[in-house]
Design a protein around this nucleic acid. Structure first.
Lengths: 178, 178
DNA sequence: TTGACTGTACCGTCTGGACGGTATGAATAT
DNA sequence: ATATTCATACCGTCCAGACGGTACAGTCAA
């Protein structure tokens, strides 16, 4: 009994990631969630409400992720470097929800942008607790964001240089400035 | 006589950037380009063909941008750092076309991803001509990509740290490893 | 009995696309 | 010199289908 509501949101995310906004129709989402269309509309009264539900989930997961980041035994930076790699999803499922929200950042208008901006701000704040230099903290975050963009485009993440090499480079950069 | 074809592509880009894929309907594009729908369809036989036209333009502009990058008096890196900032568009209009293409990266399926990947590869190759360390070259590119993502979400580019500070940090990082 | 659905039937709107027509100008034929 | 043909570059209308959303009768576990 996973709760149909969550299943609908999961399905919405999946369709957004795999087929984009145009593929995430109410019918398709309902089918993917194994719920009738009527059932979907019972939980989310309109498509806007569905998008709102995704935004709400993003907010929740972002908050939870920030907590995990702060309480990580190796510190926020280590956590961030570990989880911002597309392959390893964040425990809270933040990555997935974030990427899905990115796809509706225009359709949902400003609301999505605001939440997205808040998620970024939360992450940066957590990073700053460990990285004293604000410029460097931002740089680290931007590298993670760049990796996100790669995932968005479905780029192969370049086999030439591994993400692990990138992370260790970042670590040495951080150590040098400390 | 600017050529209706180019005007259509310009309008398509604008709508993609301002309203996203759902706003970029054939009618809307035609209206924005001040061309009738029939006229639009004369130049691009279908919506897929329109997307294809955008991809073609991206390829052209990317090639031209790579040339400008290589022939820049201050070197590829300086050029990249200068132009990857959303505010200052690249001379060839690459930024705009790239961002627009990002919005249809799913609808156009794999074709868009391939071109996007090639643009990234071209940029990285140009960067590598100046930055010997491949990991560092990739890092620089990812920072630029992160800035792109910010533009995509419409994030305020954080007023806390200026992009100029970020650039100078990057420059000093590059100088230190040389 | 209520809440959480399912299933089916619909409706109005919008969208991509097909299609037939038109204006212009250059080439060719007479 | 005039008439005819042809290609290019559009315009405006129409339509089938898809989409979001509504309505409502029924099911079934707690």
């Amino acid at each position: 009994m996973t709760g149909a509501r969550d299943r609908v949101l999961d399905a919405y995310e999946s369709l957004l990631l795999e087929q984009g906004p145009s593929g995430a129709t109410l019918d398709a989402v309902a089918a993917a969630a194994e719920v009738s269309k009527g059932g979907l509309l019972y939980h989310f009264g309109s498509k806007d409400a569905l998008a709102g539900g995704l935004l709400e989930r993003l907010r929740e997961r972002s908050t939870r992720d920030a907590e995990l980041m702060r309480s990580d035994p190796d510190g926020p930076v280590a956590y961030y470097l570990r989880t911002s790699v597309p392959g390893a999803a964040s425990p809270a499922g933040l990555t997935r929800t974030y990427l899905a929200t990115l796809r509706i950042a225009d359709a949902s208008g400003t609301a999505a942008r605001e939440v997205l901006a808040r998620v970024d701000a939360d992450g940066l704040a957590a990073l700053r607790e460990e990285i004293t230099d604000p410029v460097l903290a931002w740089l680290v975050q931007l590298v993670g964001d760049g990796l996100y963009l790669r995932t968005l485009t479905g780029a192969p993440l370049t086999g030439d240089v591994s993400v692990e090499e990138l992370r260790s480079k970042l670590r040495s950069l951080l150590a040098a400035s400390a």
